[in-house]
């Protein structure tokens, strides 16, 4: 997926210039290009598919409204993720209440678990484990992990997106990994006990 995204011949700037001239098709191209990452980032922050979809859509509308302000000082994706991150984080602060704690395993909606069971058992299993690990993190840490490992953003880009400085991001990533390792240790230990 990420390889497909980076293989495009025309730069984002080309499409942005066309959008500013009133070409809606150019905007639909950018939406198609980034929709999965935008949706993933908001889903990881919000942990709810409907809210994530809403935030992702709002973010694209905000992008369209503010496109004139984008001066190409950073990558378009960095600017876009910053809008998504801010929109999602403010949604978390406004909407989610501390009483909404749900059982770990159901925290993220795992869709179509029974589909192609034999073929994708490992993939699904890994996905479930990752979701359980993510569940132990707060929304900021989930966003950092998503940006750093999934979208392979640089530390400086993550700093721009989140507004946290470079050294703090490195520390946070290190601590988050440590936390995930500890949780993974517990999961694997339980699995081994189950096998024995």
């Amino acid at each position: 997926m990420r390889h497909i995204i980076r293989m495009d011949k025309k730069s984002d700037r080309f499409y942005i210039d066309n959008i500013l001239k009133g070409d809606v098709q150019a905007f639909s191209y950018l939406v198609d290009k980034y929709k999965d990452m935008v949706f993933t980032l908001s889903f990881r922050i919000l942990k709810n598919r409907e809210n994530a979809e809403e935030v992702a859509q709002d973010s694209f509308v905000k992008v369209y409204q503010n496109l004139k302000k984008f001066k190409s000082k950073s990558k378009f994706s960095t600017w876009l993720y910053r809008i998504v991150y801010n929109t999602a984080i403010s949604r978390v602060r406004v909407k989610q209440k501390p009483t909404m704690l749900i059982d770990d395993q159901n925290y993220f909606e795992i869709e179509d678990k029974n589909q192609n069971v034999s073929k994708s058992f490992d993939i699904e299993n890994n996905k479930m484990i990752l979701q359980r690990l993510m569940n132990k993190l707060d929304e900021n840490d989930r966003a950092l992990i998503t940006l750093y490992y999934l979208d392979e953003c640089k530390i400086s880009e993550i700093a721009e997106i989140t507004g946290i400085n470079n050294s703090n991001i490195k520390v946070k990533l290190h601590r988050t990994r440590k936390k995930m390792q500890e949780e993974l240790h517990k999961i694997m230990k339980n699995e081994m006990v189950g096998i024995i």
């Binding site: 999965d36 993933t40 999934l150 993974l184």
Partner: peptide, 12 residues
Amino acid sequence: ELLKHQDYEKAP
């Protein structure tokens, strides 16, 4: 391995 092979959530 888990972090490397994670995938994007599909938008509707």
